[in-house]
Design a protein around this nucleic acid. Structure first.
Lengths: 156, 156
DNA sequence: AAATTAGTTCGGTTAATTCAGAACCAACTA
DNA sequence: TAGTTGGTTCTGAATTAACCGAACTAATTT
């Protein structure tokens, strides 16, 4: 087959960069972040390896490694079509909620750490201990609230 | 005055590293993260610049820059004592909730980006658009729930 | 006024991350 | 079976981030 060309509208290119910056801030590499962006704005919402290489302007190796990472994190997966060897990569909405969950859990992990820390401290500086405990309580409330929201959502 | 020595119990040192790793994962540098750890386990819960330098085993410049960063983020502040030129740095529990708030808001910022993205898309791939919208809705619910929890907490 | 203390600021070094190129492999095609 | 396609893996180069040392400043002490 001959090489089709991906043509992305300028405002979509901008959006890819915007989405990219968001995900860079949350720890993904620039190229991985742009891939997420591309797959979000893309019509159709799935793209071949080649198309991704072209659209994000990176080398095959970088795209390959980035896709591997994104798949392992559950952000991206791929579909195939009969009689077509290519993989069509797409963002994986179904597992996305798990990604959010993990990120929230990471934040909330501080609760446990704080409790441990207070246990280690003497009662010499009670005010500070109480402040730490209060913060831990706040985290507990957050955790309860958030997991309620998530489980409600999952019932749908 | 002559140099007192900070002596930190081994299990507290371990806890400093543990807290450190947590904050590294959320984007702070290793030294900045360890400073947070130190100030959490420390008795008293405030430390001088010198003590911090010694305890985290880093150079004055690194500690100075890290403290500046931590103060600008609202994680750390300092108190002073009359007749004492030193600053006593401590973690700033009162502004901590603002820090959490900001981090959650950062996560939830994706909601807006997703809505924009859907607006950009044609109605050619409705399933995908709907999935994006559903995710945005989930983010909305999270946002509502979380801000409720925070405002309840702030009433205390 | 000289010395000390409590930090800050400025360059340079080192380490880690990100990426590209080339060689490679496995599946399919002529 | 030789060539092409759709990727992967490895090595090294370039970029970026983290850190240190030294020189500096401003306040205090001698």
């Amino acid at each position: 087959m001959f090489g089709e060309h991906v043509n992305i509208a300028p405002e979509k290119k901008k959006q890819i960069e915007k989405i990219g910056i968001f995900f860079e801030k949350s720890g993904f590499s620039p190229v991985a972040s742009r891939i997420i962006g591309l797959l979000m704005v893309s019509e159709p919402p799935y793209r071949t390896f080649e198309e991704i290489v072209e659209a994000v302007v990176a080398s095959k190796s970088t795209v390959s490694n980035s896709l591997r990472l994104l798949q392992s994190e559950g952000m991206v997966d791929y579909i195939t079509f009969p009689g077509d060897r290519k993989r069509y990569f797409q963002i994986s909405i179904s597992t996305w909620i798990g990604v959010i969950k993990k990120r929230l859990e990471d934040i909330l992990g501080l609760r446990q750490i704080m409790k441990e820390t207070v246990d280690m401290r003497s009662d010499k500086y009670k005010d500070f201990n109480n402040e730490l405990l209060e913060m831990a309580d706040f985290y507990t409330e957050l955790e309860v609230g958030v997991s309620e929201i998530i489980s409600n959502w999952e019932k749908k």
